[in-house]
């Protein structure tokens, strides 16, 4: 009985444990593409609506028209980011010869959805009650919480990404006049950086 056999055994055990309990096919590319769409969305929002007005502390004058434009931009961003995420992730699962839809994916999505849907509903409630300013910080915070929540079922790097998103969200809540910049940093820049880091890690 050689030592090498046991070293190999241990490695195999670790690999099986990881493969069986975590969803590991998140591709760095989905982070990069989501980041790019977020940056484009933030830029469009700034150009079309927010750039037209003098920004003063906790005061932004939004007409109903502006609000509709912003919501359309936000919706488009979300749809594009999510569908590109699904595309790159399912490509990665195929490459790793794993199933896209198994109980790990299900567990991941449910745990992602709980904080995310809560946050989304709260944002809508705030919107209907005209607390528009708090919405951008809240999207960052709830997204961060959702990431921290799922990090135990997937790549553990998502935990630090989530904590950074929460910090940016709190920052945005302190400086609401700059919240779009915080949002672009959180959903845009951080996603791109994270995606690039993951791609490099995967290759090595």
């Amino acid at each position: 009985m050689s030592k090498e056999k046991y070293v190999k055994d241990l490695e195999e055990i670790k690999d099986i444990m990881k493969r069986s309990s975590r969803f590991i096919s998140l591709s760095g590319m989905s982070g990069i593409s989501a980041g790019i769409f977020a940056l484009a969305g933030a830029y469009a929002a700034y150009k079309m609506v927010l750039g037209n007005q003098a920004l003063e502390y906790d005061k932004a004058v939004l007409t109903n028209n502006d609000l509709t434009t912003l919501l359309i931009i936000a919706g488009l961003c979300l749809i594009l980011a999510v569908s590109s995420g699904i595309f790159f992730t399912s490509r990665e699962t195929k490459k790793r010869k794993q199933k896209v839809w198994d109980h790990q994916t299900k567990r991941l999505l449910i745990n992602l959805a709980i904080p995310l849907v809560t946050g989304g509903l709260l944002c809508l409630i705030m919107l209907f009650n005209n607390y528009v300013g708090i919405i951008i910080p809240m999207t960052l915070i709830f997204y961060g919480l959702a990431l921290v929540n799922i990090s135990k079922y997937t790549l553990h790097e998502l935990r630090s990404l989530g904590i950074l998103e929460i910090a940016l969200g709190l920052g945005a809540a302190c400086f609401i006049e700059f919240s779009l910049i915080f949002w672009a940093l959180g959903f845009g820049a951080l996603h791109i950086i994270y995606g690039v880091v993951m791609q490099i890690k995967n290759k090595s």
């Binding site: 055994d9 099986i16 493969r19 069986s20 198994d102």
Partner: peptide, 22 residues
């Protein structure tokens, strides 16, 4: 050893998943 590795970190696993994993 593989079966035990899977079952120690997961609450439960069905036959097909075990078969595919191992």
């Amino acid at each position: 050893l593989g079966i035990m590795s899977v079952l120690v970190v997961n609450e439960y696993t069905d036959f097909t998943s075990l078969k595919e994993l191992l």
